[in-house]
Design a binder for these strands. Sequence first.
DNA 1: TTGAAATATCACATATAGATGTTATCTTTT
DNA 2: AAAAGATAACATCTATATGTGATATTTCAA
Lengths: 261, 261
Amino acid sequence: MKPDDRRQAIMDVLMEAGTASVEELSFRFGVSKMTVHRDLDDLEQAGLLRKVHGGASIQSSPQFESDFRYREKIATSEKRRLGEYAATLVEPGQSVIIDDSSTAGAIAGFLKDIRPLTVITNNLGVITDLSGVPGMNLIALGGHYSKRFNGFFGVVTEEALRSLRADVAFLSSSAVEGTAAFHQDQEVVQIKRQMVKSANRKYLLVDHGKFGRSALHFLMGLEAFDAVLTGSEVSDGHARELGDAGVGLLRIDNQKIMEKA
Amino acid sequence: MKPDDRRQAIMDVLMEAGTASVEELSFRFGVSKMTVHRDLDDLEQAGLLRKVHGGASIQSSPQFESDFRYREKIATSEKRRLGEYAATLVEPGQSVIIDDSSTAGAIAGFLKDIRPLTVITNNLGVITDLSGVPGMNLIALGGHYSKRFNGFFGVVTEEALRSLRADVAFLSSSAVEGTAAFHQDQEVVQIKRQMVKSANRKYLLVDHGKFGRSALHFLMGLEAFDAVLTGSEVSDGHARELGDAGVGLLRIDNQKIMEKA
DNA sequence: TTGAAATATCACATATAGATGTTATCTTTT
DNA sequence: AAAAGATAACATCTATATGTGATATTTCAA
């Protein structure tokens, strides 16, 4: 295991647990405490965690939470799982919309083998990821770049979307309360709404942590989506609530779908 | 000097001279012939050159020439020079269009200090380069991605451009013959033309090697540009030809402008 | 507040992977 | 076949990563 891999792994541990001791990390990765200290210093330098006496804890200010570098890491395993499953909903030859979220972005990696394929996105991560994949028709949505979301937004984006039509769209939102999705940014909301309009089938991908939270702007009701994909970790209460409202919910297990409500 | 730097440097030499001997490279970089061999093997593996007995020569099939990985490397110093000068034509607060070319792309690095600034581009290299620069309002033009040009093209791109207006545009073309610019790709031509329409001042940046060559599609007459920027290496004959036709030509020296025709 | 225990840091020693050079041997060119 | 060049195998060198033990700092309880 190389240093960089170990550091990534440390972040993964932190993302899960929120906090970890030097002792524990040292044992877990089979390296000295000194090495763990050096890793933590490095990661702290990069602004990814905060060292505390005895270990480290994850940065978690509100400002930090909405930073995409943070968001792209949290719940990585759940996101990968959702992404992997979502990719099975796509057939070769289709066109797919992917929004600016890191959750939807996780699909990109799994789409590389489904060719030919058209991918439409305003997500810079996805663009970088898929540019140069042979057999991949990559359509970028322009717009002004937002560092916070690592994507493109605005009238230009919206107009470009209006002239396009896709088979499937994969979106995410930062919060799900009751049977509606919410997002903290008006501009992002605009684009997501247009994406839904421009696609035949629509799926909302949200990790279980998003349930029961709210955000400033109403995005849309969940009934707008063909299905909501989330991790099996989601509480039965939330699952039932959606089921009662007639919203299709797919709880994705590590191996397969758990339940089709 | 690190291995990767040396390999890059070897490519630079090759780009200039077209061919180089192992002996020569070994001496020039102060390493053994064995090391040069290893470098060349590596670069050959990456498809960037062809080994021949005694040295290496550059890959130079027509297909390869129009590959952006190749284009982004040739005449680097001249391009940097043009880019650096071009940046002086931009004032803080303005909006700037940069096209898909690597020549125009070279401006990006020099624009980072001119803030605030709006940059409009379909060049993925520039987007990657400028995303995250604070004080920079980066507007990407969408469109379908072309690996060959590492940029975005098509109706979407064109439409986005139509709704935008910039103070300055920096373009390049693959050939200049007489007093007209040419390009090998129809789709690219479309976008460049719209860029010119969407900008107040327009500059064409071309390294001296582009003069006297031609390409499939007529792009536009040079009189459409406020000035043509090129290296001082350009022949007097070509310079005179432009001057006679009333086209503004700026020959950029290593230190300053040589001549203002 | 103070001192013992826990933890962190520092400076140096060691280990390791990658890069390079050398020489001998094989291959190509003429 | 001789000369030039390429390759292979091994030795050496170097930067980076890691570990160790000494020293400093922090924590917490008395």
